[in-house]
Nucleic acid binder design. Structure first.
Length: 424
RNA sequence: GGAGGGAUGGCUGAGUGGUUGAAAGCAUCGGUCUUGAAAACCGACAUGCCGAAAGGCAUCGGGGGUUCGAAUCCCUCUCCCUCCGCCA
C-alpha cells in the first residue's frame, strides 16, 4: 500500500512510476479526489465534535451544581444527529478510498529497466555452463516415467490435472532437496526456520498483497473464509503483522511449505509434466530490514538463492525484471532461471523481491529506529528455491545415456545412500 | 461441541457513566549526585488522523447500540484461559 501522504504530496513521482508499470492511472485520480473529499468532511465533523465535547463537559459541571440542563441537552442532541450522519458519510468515503488504495501497485524502483513485458527484462548475469551431451537429452517427463518416480495419471484421477504425485526415490529426492535447502539457509545464511499454517485468512492475504487483486488465482475455502497459501511469503511475512518488532533488525526467516495456485487460463506446452502445477513445494526466504539497508539485502538474498543452485552444480542466469513485469507489490525483482537441457529452455525457480514498505504498510509491521520512533520496516522475499523446476533441471542435467540420473554429492547426506536414480 | 472467566499504553496492573488519554509499578530516555558505576532523587515517556500553526478529532481486542457525555451500560464478533466432551 502506498502512503496516502506520498500520493498527495508527490503525485507526479507516483504517477510516473505507475505509468512505467502500465498501471491504471484513473485509479490514482480517484484516490486523489476521495482524499480531498475525506479531508473536507473530516474538518466539519471534527469542528462539530469539538463543540459537543465542550458542551457535554459544561452539562456535567452544571448538573453538579444542581442546575436544570434539559434545554441545552435537547439542543446538543440535534447536533449529535448531524454528527452521526456526517460520520456515516465519512466512513463511506474512507472505505472507498481504502479499497482504491489497496488496488494501486507499488511504485517501481527508479533504477530498474523500463518496459511493458518480459522482453524488456535485463539479463544481469549467467553462471555456470550448459553440459555437453553425447546423446539426445530427454525431457523430465520421459525420464521420470522410466525412473518410476512420478505418477501423473493416478494423481489426475484423485485430484485432477496439475497435482503431482511423487513415488519412491522421487518422493525421497523431493524431501532431500527441501532439507538440503533449509539446512543451507539456517546454518549458512542466518535464517530462522518456521513451519507455518498452510491456510490463512483474508487479512493476511491482503497484508502481502495477494488480495484483493489475485483472488481468482487462489484456492478459497468458502465455508471458513480461509485461503490456501500460494507461497510461504504470506504466512511468513504475516508473522509480524500488527506488531512493532521488538528485536534487532534485520530478521531472516525461512520456511518450507506447499504452495497452491489455481492459475486459471494456463494451457499447452507450459503445462507438460510438472512444469506448471496447482500444488508445488517451495522453500522461501523472508527478510524484515531497516529501510536504508533493503537494496543491499536484496543482493544478498539473491546470493542466498544462488548458493542453493551452485551447491547442486547447476547452470543458471539472473534476470532483472523490468517495470512492467514485476509483481504488484514489488519495487524491484530478480528472477533466477535454471537451464533445462530437455526443454532447451530456462526455467524460473526463484523470484527475489524488495517490497520496500509496501507490504509493511498493508500488514502494519513496524520497528523502532535509533530515536525510538516507530517506522515501517522494509520486507523482502525470495524463493530458495521452488521444487518442481529444480527437480526438472536436476533430472535433465544429470541424466545418463541409459536413462539413469546421477545425484549431486550435496544431496548425499539426505538420500540415505542413494547416489543415482535408476530406471525400473 | 457444552459451561464459565478474560482482553486496558513496551510490560504488569487499577479503574462500573462527567477534565480518565487513562492511577501505580516495571522498563526506557534525560538530569542531579558519584573518580566511575549502582542506588537514591528529579523530570520525560502511547498511537493515528486533520491542520501552516495554535490546536483539534479519534483510539482502553473488532464492529454496532443506549446517552448531552461510554474504558465503564447493552448487543455482536474475534482471540486467549479453565473445566467437560470428542479426537490424530
Amino acid at each position: 500500500m502506498l502512503d496516502i501522504k506520498r500520493i498527495r504530496e508527490k503525485t507526479d513521482e507516483v504517477r510516473e512510476g505507475l505509468r512505467r508499470r502500465g498501471a491504471d492511472l484513473a485509479l490514482l485520480d480517484a484516490v486523489l479526489e476521495l482524499d480531498r473529499q475525506r479531508r473536507a468532511l473530516l474538518g466539519s465533523a471534527e469542528e462539530m465534535k469539538n463543540r459537543r465535547n465542550a458542551t457535554s463537559k459544561e452539562i456535567g459541571a452544571a448538573r453538579k451544581r444542581g442546575e436544570d440542563t434539559a434545554a441545552i441537552q435537547a439542543e446538543i442532541r440535534t447536533l449529535g444527529d448531524r454528527i452521526t450522519a456526517l460520520d456515516e458519510q465519512i466512513r463511506g468515503v474512507e472505505a472507498e478510498l481504502h479499497k482504491a488504495v489497496l488496488c494501486i501497485p507499488n511504485v517501481p524502483c527508479a533504477t530498474i529497466p523500463t518496459g511493458s513485458d518480459a522482453s524488456a527484462n535485463r539479463v544481469a548475469r549467467v553462471e555456470g555452463q550448459s553440459r555437453e551431451f553425447a546423446f539426445q537429452p530427454k525431457d523430465h517427463v520421459a525420464l521420470a516415467e522410466k525412473l518410476g518416480i512420478l505418477d501423473l495419471p493416478r494423481a489426475a484421477r484423485m485430484s485432477g490435472s496439475g497435482f503431482p504425485l511423487l513415488v519412491g526415490a522421487g518422493a525421497k529426492l523431493q524431501r532431500a532437496l527441501i532439507q538440503y535447502m533449509l539446512d543451507l539457509h539456517t546454518t549458512c545464511h542466518g535464517y530462522t526456520e518456521l513451519l507455518p499454517p498452510f491456510v490463512v485468512n483474508s487479512d493476511a492475504m491482503c497484508g502481502t498483497g495477494q488480495l484483493p487483486k489475485m483472488a481468482e488465482d487462489m484456492y478459497h475455502c468458502e465455508k471458513d473464509d480461509l485461503w490456501l497459501i500460494p507461497t510461504a511469503e504470506v504466512p511468513v511475512t504475516n508473522y509480524f503483522r500488527e506488531e512493532i518488532i521488538d528485536r534487532p533488525l534485520p530478521i531472516f526467516l525461512t520456511a518450507y511449505t506447499p504452495c497452491f495456485r489455481r492459475e486459471a487460463g494456463s494451457a499447452g506446452k507450459e503445462t507438460r509434466g510438472i512444469l506448471r502445477v496447482h500444488q508445488f513445494d517451495k522453500v522461501e526466504m523472508v527478510k524484515f530490514v531497516a529501510p536504508e539497508t533493503s537494496y543491499a539485502e536484496l543482493e544478498k538474498l539473491v546470493g542466498n538463492a544462488e548458493d542453493v543452485l551452485q551447491g547442486l552444480g547447476l547452470h543458471y542466469r539472473i534476470l532483472e525484471l523490468c517495470s512492467g513485469d514485476i509483481s504488484f507489490a514489488a519495487a524491484k525483482c530478480y528472477d533466477i532461471e535454471l537451464w533445462a537441457p530437455g526443454q532447451q529452455g530456462w526455467l524460473e525457480v526463484s523470484s527475489c523481491s524488495n517490497f520496500e514498505d509496501f507490504q509493511a504498510r498493508r500488514a502494519n509491521i513496524r520497528y523502532r529506529d535509533a530515536e525510538g520512533k516507530t517506522r515501517f520496516v522494509h520486507t523482502l522475499n525470495g524463493s530458495g528455491v521452488a521444487l518442481p523446476r529444480l527437480m526438472i533441471a536436476l533430472l535433465e542435467n544429470y541424466q545418463q545415456a541409459d536413462g539413469s540420473v546421477i545425484l549431486p554429492p550435496a544431496l548425499a547426506p539426505y538420500m540415505g545412500g542413494i547416489d543415482r536414480l535408476v530406471p525400473k
